[in-house]
Simulated assay, not measured.
Amino acid sequence: MTPPDADRIDVVYLWVDGADPHWQAKRRAAQDRTGANAGAARYGDVSGRYRDNGELRYNLRALQRFFPDHGHVHIVTDGQCPAWLRTGPGLGPGVSVVDHRTLMPAAALPVFDSGHIETYLHHLPGLSERFVYFNDDVFLGAPFDATWWFSEAGLAVFKEAALLPDYPGPQPHESALVNASLLSRAWLSASDPQYRHVPRIFAHSPRPMLVSAMRQLELEAPELFHAVRGTVFRSWAVPPLIPDLVPRWMVHLGRAIVRECAWAYLSSGAADAAEQFGELCASFGKLDFFCINDTSDNAAPDAHQLRRIAETLEQLLPYPSQFEH
């Protein structure tokens, strides 16, 4: 296989269609087999985690608008493919739909914990050294400057303003990001007595990454990778590594830099959701990125808060990308 272009920046997405009956049957069988609710993380196995509100379609529209020079697009799924997605020749850098079965050991499948799946992304065949990993609910909101996200000073990472609680380790009632930070603190402090933990959550953002760095971390922290690769559903006791440990480790090594930027986090189930979405529309084009988090959990598919997501995205990004039929 020809090595990827050193200057190329690929893009990686995870995607799932939670309304697919075949996928739903696999989820129910896994729940029955594992007793998933016993150790589930907070909001770790609710419908909102798997629901498709059309985010990937609009994410690709934002990608084409704000980062037209991106490399190959890799969409990692559990045997699914969006009906609207166009693949094949004539797509410039192109797009690949990668089945979990080609990336992960058969004995581990099926997997419903994104934190587990994420630990294999740097093993994607043909992936460029530099790549950006997106959850499909995190969108570019302004032109992507590759020299800012991947600079000589290091990869760009971002932290939130709120202080983290000071627990000795992961807690059943806490969010995955809080528990991920607590895990990071324990591992990094044990690895280097000089480590000083920043008591902030790292933002839910586009994640610039390096294949070589991920391979190095996998060798240095095999026990952490082994633990999260043992999950089926997200567990509060085994938090994800990619959202927190990876950026903190990179900052500690001097290979990433904490930057300030304009961004927004929207929660579809919040009492002030209408105001949040209105502010997004007013600031679109000026935000480096934004996240629309589906916190409506087990809402009906036609609930107004879910329609608001699709209607807002269509208003902001009305023009189809090259990846659509």
Rank of each mutant, 00 (worst) to 15 (best):
D7Y: 03
I9W: 13
D17H: 11
G18R: 14
Q24G: 07
A25Q: 15
K26G: 12
A30C: 12
Q31Y: 03
Q31T: 07
T34E: 15
G35T: 07
R42D: 06
G44Y: 00
V46I: 03
G48T: 03
D52N: 10
L56S: 05
R57W: 07
R61F: 07
A62D: 09
F67C: 14
P68G: 11
H74K: 06
H74G: 00
H74S: 11
I75C: 05
P82N: 11
A83K: 04
R86E: 04
G90I: 08
G90K: 14
V98H: 00
V98Y: 00
R101P: 01
L103R: 08
G115L: 04
F131G: 04
V132M: 14
V132P: 06
D136C: 08
D136M: 11
P143V: 00
F144W: 15
T147V: 04
V157P: 00
A161M: 09
L163H: 05
P165T: 10
D166Y: 09
P172Y: 08
H173I: 03
L183Q: 13
S184V: 06
L188I: 04
L188M: 11
Q194C: 08
R196M: 05
F202P: 06
A203G: 01
S205A: 15
L210C: 07
L210H: 14
S212F: 03
R215M: 07
E223V: 05
H226V: 04
A227Y: 03
T231N: 14
W236N: 14
A237N: 11
P239N: 04
L241R: 13
I242M: 14
V246L: 08
M250K: 08
M250P: 01
A256W: 10
R259I: 00
R259Q: 12
E260Q: 13
Y265G: 06
S268H: 03
S268Y: 06
A271M: 14
A271E: 15
A274Q: 12
K286Y: 03
D294L: 10
D294T: 12
N298H: 13
A299S: 10
A300R: 15
H304S: 13
H304P: 05
Q305K: 11
L306H: 04
R307V: 02
R308C: 12
I309N: 08
T312I: 02
L316I: 02
P318F: 13
P320N: 08
Q322P: 00
